[in-house]
Computed example of a mutant assay.
Amino acid sequence: MRRLSILGATGSVGTSTLDLVARHRDRFSLEAVTANGDAAGLARIALDYGARFAAVADEAAYPALREALAGSGIEAAAGPSAVAAAGARPADMVVAAISGAAGVEPVLAAIGQGTTVALANKESLVAAGALVMGAARARGVAILPVDSEHNAVFQALAGSRMEDVETVWITASGGPFRTWDAAAIAAARPEDALKHPNYAMGAKVTVDSAGLMNKGLELIEAHHLFSLPPERLKALIHPQQVVHGMVGYRDGSIVAQLGAADMRVPIAHCLGFPERIDGPSRRLDFAAIATLTFEEPDLVRFPALRLAIEAMTAGGRAPTVLNAANEVAVEAFLAGSIGFAAIAPLVEAVLAEEGVGPAPATLDDLWLIDHAARHRARATMLNARAAAS
Results as ranks from 00 to 15, higher is better:
A352Y: 06
F28W: 02
L236I: 09
V141Y: 01
E296C: 08
I111V: 14
A85G: 03
K204I: 06
P190Q: 07
R66E: 15
L131T: 13
G14W: 04
R189L: 06
D147F: 02
A387I: 05
S281T: 09
L108C: 03
G87I: 06
V95F: 00
H224T: 09
C270A: 15
E310D: 15
S99D: 07
H375V: 09
D164I: 10
A78F: 02
G50H: 11
A51R: 11
V56Y: 01
E231Q: 06
G174F: 08
N36R: 10
V247E: 05
E310K: 01
R306F: 04
T206N: 01
E331D: 08
V321D: 00
L271F: 06
A388D: 08
A91Q: 15
A184C: 05
W180P: 04
A109E: 05
A118F: 02
T313L: 03
E296I: 09
V13P: 01
A78P: 03
K204A: 08
P176V: 11
A102S: 11
A342Y: 01
V83F: 01
A318C: 08
V104C: 00
A64V: 09
A188D: 12
E231A: 01
I111M: 02
A138K: 13
V117Q: 02
E354Y: 02
G248F: 05
T15N: 03
G50C: 02
A158H: 11
G37L: 01
I111D: 03
G336M: 05
S281Y: 09
I143V: 15
M381Q: 14
A35H: 06
L292F: 07
G245L: 04
A329L: 01
G216A: 12
S389C: 10
L299P: 04
R161A: 13
A182F: 09
E353Y: 02
V153W: 07
A260P: 08
D19G: 07
I98N: 02
I237Q: 03
D92G: 10
L368Y: 07
P274Y: 05
L228V: 06
A388T: 12
I98S: 00
A287D: 11
E275F: 07
V321G: 02
R376I: 06
D92C: 02
A152T: 12
A22Q: 13
P319I: 12
R250D: 03
L7S: 06
A373F: 03
G259E: 08
I6V: 15
E166T: 09
P80D: 10
V347S: 04
T380S: 08
A64G: 04
P297K: 07
G73M: 10
A203K: 15
A386H: 10
N198T: 15
D285H: 07
P345D: 07
I74E: 03
A290M: 10
P106G: 05
L219F: 08
R89G: 09
A97I: 11
T116I: 10
E149D: 04
G174L: 09
A384W: 09
A9L: 02
S72I: 10
L334C: 13
L284W: 01
C270G: 12
V242Y: 05
D48N: 15
V330N: 01
P80E: 11
A290S: 06
F28D: 15
V205D: 03
K234W: 07
I369W: 02
A235V: 11
T362L: 00
N121L: 09
